[in-house]
Every structure is written in C-alpha cells, then in structure tokens.
Design a protein around this nucleic acid. Structure first.
Lengths: 334, 334
DNA sequence: CTGAAAGCGCTTACAG
DNA sequence: CTGAAAGCGCTTACAG
C-alpha cells in the first residue's frame, strides 16, 4: 500500500497533476505521457486511494443501509437489490443490521454521518425521539424503503399497507369466512404494524363481521412468533376458519403450528400471508399472499436516492407501489 | 456538513490541536478547555470527518465482506453475525453480493483495495485465476469463512467438509439404506462442492454400496435446484430410498418435489440436509441435517481478522470447526 | 498539453 | 497543559 501518486509520477517522469489526469478524465494529456503513466501504474501495481480522493471531492460513493433484521427473507431480498443497483451505479454499500435495537440504529446513523456517506436507505420504521430529531437535522439524503415512520420529511417507498391488508381480509370474507384471526406485526411500525391492522379491522367491519379480541395478536414478523401466536389462537373455544398474517414468515409459522396440531390447511383453516417472499412457494400448501414488489422497491430506493444526491427531482415525497393478491393453495371457501 | 474542526477551535477559543485532543484520548487537556471545546462541539453540532481521520491514521475501520448470495439463508446468517461482531469491535462493514459473478467479485476486490479497507472476509470459494493472483499479491488481511479455495495463503475457517459429508452418508447407511442419491453443490467449490461429494462417495464405498451415476447430480445450493434435481432423480426406474443434499435449501427443495409427486418423507424416501439453517425447523417433516456452526464461524472470522489486522497471532492458517449431525424427522430406517 | 502550489479535514511529533 | 506546523494522498484552479 506504500505506493502513491507521487511514486508513479516520479517513475513516469511527469508531474503528479498529469498522473491524476490520466487516472480521471484523461483529458489534456498527450498520448505519449498517457502511455508512460499507464506503464508506471502497471509496474508499480498502483491503486489510488479512495479516501484521499473522497476528502478532496467531498464524495464517498458510499450508501448506507439500515435493515431491521438481515436474516428475515424480505430484508435480504431488498438488500440484495439495493446492493445490485448501487453497484451498477458505482456506489458501495455499508450495512447496519439494527437487530431491532433502536440504540444501535442511532449509533450507526451517527457513524454514517461521520463517514460522510452520500446517502442512506432505511427499511425499518421504528424510530425513537432522538433518532427522529437526528433525521430532521441531518442533511444527507435519505429514503425509506418498505417503511414509513410518522412525522419525518424523507422520501418513502411503500405499498398502501392499509388497502393491501383490507384487500387481503376482504378476500377471505369473499370466500365466506366469518371467523378470521389476525397475526399482526410490530405495533410500533406505522405501516406494517398499524396500517395492516386497520385494514383488517375495517374490512371486517364493512362486511359486518364482529372483531373477536382473542383472534388478534401481534408479533415481530418472524416464523417463531407466527407459530406461538397461532398456538395461542388454537386454544380459543371456537376456532377461526381463516388467519391473516402480516408477514409470510408468520403465515408459515401459523401453518406449521396448525399442522403440528393435527389440523389441515386449508381444509380446516385457511391462511393468507403478506410480502411475497420465497417461502410462499416453499411451504406446502403453497402460500396465498398479499404481495409487495419487494425487489422493485429496493431498486427504486437506490435510484431515487441517487437522484436526490445529484439534486435532481426532490419534489417526490412518497411513492406508492402496487400490492397484488397472489392466490396459491392455502385458502379455500368455507 | 460545513462545520469542521477549525470552526469549533475558533468558537472555543483554542487551537485545532486541543480540539483534536478532546475528540480523541482527552489527555493533556485541562478540564477548563475540555469543557469549552465540548460546549462548542455541542453548539455547532460538530461531527468529525471519518475520512480525513482515516487518511491520517491509515486506518478506515472498514471490513469488507464478499458473499456469494445474500438471499441464501446460510449467508444471511453468517453476514448478520459478521456485522454484529464487527460492530462490537468498532468496525463497519461493506458488503459485496457477488451473485455468483466472478467478474463482480474481482471488481469489488479492487474497490476494497482502493478503499483501503482494514480487512476482508470472503464466504465464497469460487475464484478465477486473476482473482487468485490478486489475493496472492494483496497485503490486506483476509479470512475465508465457511469456504476454502485451493492454492491460496489466507486463513480459512471451515468444517471438515469431507468428514461431515462422510458422516452424513454413513448415517443413512446405518439406517439400512442402500440406494442413496446425492444432490451436490457447485463442483467449482473445493470444500462445499468437491469434498462433500468425496465424503459421500467414500462412505458408500466403505459400506460396499455401489455408486449409481443417475443418483448423483450437482446444483447451486438453492431450493429451486434441489427441486429440479430431485425431479430428475425421481425419473429413475429404481428409486433411491434416501437422498443426501449438500445444503438444507436443496434438501427442502427435494422434500417438496417428493411430496408434489405423491410420495412421502421419510416413509418413501429419507432426506438429509447440510448446514443447519432456519429451514430445518420450518419444513415438515423437520429436516435432519449435518450442521455447521454457522454463527460461530461468522463471529470467529471477524475476531481472527481483527487479530490479524492488529498483527497478533498470524500463525494460524486454517481452523477446523466441528460439524454435528442433528437428527429430526426426515430420515427413517428402511 | 504540462506542472507548481494550494487545499480537502484531520492527527501528531515537536517545541515551549 | 497548549499550539504552530507538517503531513496523510489526492484534485484542481491557475499560470504558462
């Protein structure tokens, strides 16, 4: 790592300026010098320092990403698309797996600021007050993907979670279900927690189906929570005929629990999930799910972030992408 | 982002040197000045530039990670542990999802070098010649986790893949199976491709079971490949009574395929997987698997990398961690 | 087309 | 305990 631009300048018999020029645009350099410089670079195995460059240019080409939990399928999918799109656009990504830890998220945001990252993507929507203040004051471009905390000014790319949940619940009622349980997400999450619940509740209401308190429980989107919540619901004296889970993982947990209790899906209980992750085709029966365009959201998040970095088109504040009911084998008429 | 150390020095009425001191160790500064500086920092909402600091210190506190495919469970688990351990040790991570693309991996390695990352962790073992040369010449500490390419000098943390596969196959023979199919990984992968196959083959040989060519096929560790390969195997005139898949994902794909063809696991065909990822408890029947200590490998990789960065203990060249057969419900006696 | 010099925002001997 | 100055490795007006 010892070789620097000065060394190649010396070796090539030119100035540092000239080396810098061939390293970058290559303009205003004669072919002769260009050759000499290239040869010197080659021989010295020279690799320019990104960080010295960043210091001068005030641009790091770094995008930071905060995900609530990398090991959850929906996050790893969105992350892989973020990385892919960033890479195509010559950006590198730094990852924070906040692991549901709000302090860690706050700490990372401060680090991102110190690192002078060019932009930040957040797929988590749980934020505490100090984080909210921080997000308010920071002047690094930020976009939320598949998340939208309340009271903040940054761009968010989301499905209409209320409507999507409404449509999912309505689908169950259209199959004749009257006893519909709900396995919800984290109530601290505005869109994936609260709005999905509200959609469920209003669909029931508009279909004149009473809300049964025992049928509603909230979890952290994980398979494990889906399982244990389903287990609790199966203890009700009168079993539901359908379950709407606010994530595919929880839906699969519910299915497994139902099976393990000797009941059948969808014969005894229908199950519908939310997200559209890979598990939908993994479980048997295949999971009917209210799907978000996860990959597209990842791609869009990066593209919009880069636009914002480049100061184009800052008018957009929220993008609503389409949700889609994909019917598979886990729901049937009652 | 406009405020810099000079601004807080001016505001506090001290020298830049003093500000730098309170920012770092805080030694050799009177309490009085310390207070003034802290106040100025607070009022200016000053955040020191990591990159200017890195330039001086020749240390970026950045660790780069290359994974073959983030969305594969085994990789997201190891990545989450890498992130967790790095974060605890005050390092940040940059991620490259190589997506099975060797050129992308090479390109990223060059970027990592330009970024002067302090260390690199690679969980992929497919490397081409130019990458091998690059890895040979680079003087950034590198450790391979759950991967070990041939002919390279860097630390690798792996299970004994040969022995683990041998033990898995032997387990099937101990249950009385004579017709054992093998769904292998990528043959370009030394340990997870070739060694697992060799373990399978030799276990059969030592148990006097003939190798049936139709029973052996290789894939990319994904559920989809497991499914399609199993589908091919089910076309054999004489069906196997057991299948050993070189990843849990492929095993689950195989199970689904078997089910979709009207057969039962383990009654008709036993299935054993490899890795020990979350899916083992998700599928029904639960998957018996030859497990690697995935999380521990992620943690160790970071710890050993940091040791190497700090120049301690460079003697270790390879660490073999224990594999473990975890019996669940997907295999039975024949 | 070419290069000397200033500057990016820090840290750290060195001198006091 | 305190600060002036050099230096980290680049880029870019500016002058020629």
């Amino acid at each position: 790592m010892a070789v620097k631009i000065k060394d190649v300048a010396k070796k090539a018999g030119v100035s540092v300026t000239t080396v810098s020029r061939v390293l970058n645009d290559g303009k205003y350099v004669s072919d002769e010098l260009k050759e000499k410089v290239k040869k010197a670079i080659e021989e010295l195995n020279y690799s320019p320092s990104f960080i010295a460059r960043s210091l001068v240019l005030k641009k790091t080409n770094l995008l930071a990403v905060i995900v609530p939990n990398i090991t959850a399928s929906v996050n790893s999918i969105i992350l892989s698309k973020i990385e892919e799109t960033a890479s195509k656009n010559n950006y590198n990504i730094i990852v924070c797996n906040m692991a549901e830890n709000l302090d860690k998220q706050y700490k990372y945001l401060n680090i991102f600021k110190e690192m002078r990252v060019d932009g930040i993507i957040i797929t988590n929507e749980k934020i505490d007050d100090k984080t909210r203040d921080f997000l308010e004051s920071i002047n690094i471009p930020i976009v939320f993907a598949s998340a939208k905390p309340s009271n903040q000014k940054h761009i968010a790319i989301v499905v209409n979670n209320y409507q999507a949940a409404y449509d999912a619940a309505e689908y169950l009622t259209s199959l004749g279900h009257k006893r519909i349980a709900f396995i919800g997400g984290d109530r601290r999450d505005i869109t994936s927690g609260q709005e999905r619940y509200n959609g469920y509740r209003n669909a029931l209401k508009n279909n004149k189906i009473p809300l049964v308190e025992e049928y509603v429980e909230f979890g952290n989107y994980s398979l494990q929570d889906g399982y244990s919540i389903m287990n609790k619901i199966l203890k009700c004296k009168k079993l539901p005929t359908a379950v709407f889970a606010a994530s595919d993982d929880m839906a699969v947990g519910a299915i497994n629990c139902i099976k393990d209790n000797g009941l059948k899906v969808p014969d005894d209980i229908s199950v519908i999930g939310f997200d559209g992750t890979a598990v939908v085709d993994i479980v048997r029966p295949r999971l009917t799910s209210m799907e978000q365009p996860i990959k597209e959201m990842g791609t869009m998040a990066v593209e919009m972030l880069i636009q914002k970095i480049n100061k184009q088109q800052t008018l957009v504040n929220e993008v609503i992408v389409n949700h889609e009911l994909v019917v598979r084998d886990s729901c049937k008429k009652v």
